[in-house]
Structures are given as C-alpha cells and as structure tokens.
C-alpha cells in the first residue's frame, strides 16, 4: 500500500486535539438527542422561565463555536505549515 508518510509533529498533535474535542461534543449532542427521545418530561422543565429543550439547543450551538475557538487557539501552526510545504 503506497500510503503517505504518517502525520507527525504538529499535524498529529492537532489531529489528536481535534478528536478529543469532537468526542466531547458528540457526547453532549447524544445527550440532547437521548433526552428528546426518551425523557421528554425533562425537556419540558423550565429554567428561569425557558424550557430545557430551548436552553440545551441554544447551548449546543454556542458550544460548537466555543470548542471551535478553543481548537483554533490550541492548534500549533508554524511547523505544520512547513510540513505542508515539505510534502
């Protein structure tokens, strides 16, 4: 199999970071889907006059942006760019 050289250094590190953040989001998203499907009474509860369904839904949208910014800040780029050129 003619595979490209395995990702190394910053590319691999960034990829691992991406997977960790991805798993965090998947768990929270799965929690939302599970609550909607199996615990609708929880979704109907109100937090400060707004029900859990709305709060959780809005939180999922905001969380996506928060994780995206965290990822962008933690990724290391300089070496990554050099590796791109080298390839």
């Amino acid at each position: 199999m003619t595979s490209p050289p395995p990702p190394s250094g910053h590319i691999a590190r960034n990829a691992r970071l991406g997977i960790v953040l991805f798993v965090v989001y998947v768990i929270i998203y799965a929690g939302f889907v599970a609550l909607a499907a199996f615990a609708p009474s929880v979704m109907a509860r109100e937090i400060a006059g707004v029900n859990v369904a709305i709060v959780y839904g809005l939180a999922l949208i905001v969380l996506a942006l928060v994780l995206a910014i965290v990822y962008m800040l933690l990724c290391r780029d300089d070496a990554d760019r050099a590796e791109d050129v080298a390839r």
């Binding site: 590319i11 960034n14 990829a15 991406g18 991805f22 989001y25 839904g57 949208i61 996506a64 994780l67």
Partner: peptide, 25 residues
Amino acid sequence: GYDGFLYSIGYLAGWIVALFVIAEP
C-alpha cells in the same frame, strides 16, 4: 414550533465533524 429548531441544531452540529475531523486532511 421546536421541530424546525431541531434542524438548526443538527445542521450546525455537523460543522463540528467538518472542523475537527475532515477539514485539514
């Protein structure tokens, strides 16, 4: 009501896959 918002949530969540898994490779 809420059912339309479910699409909003799902459509946006999909970008997490794009950013963390697919984009750079």
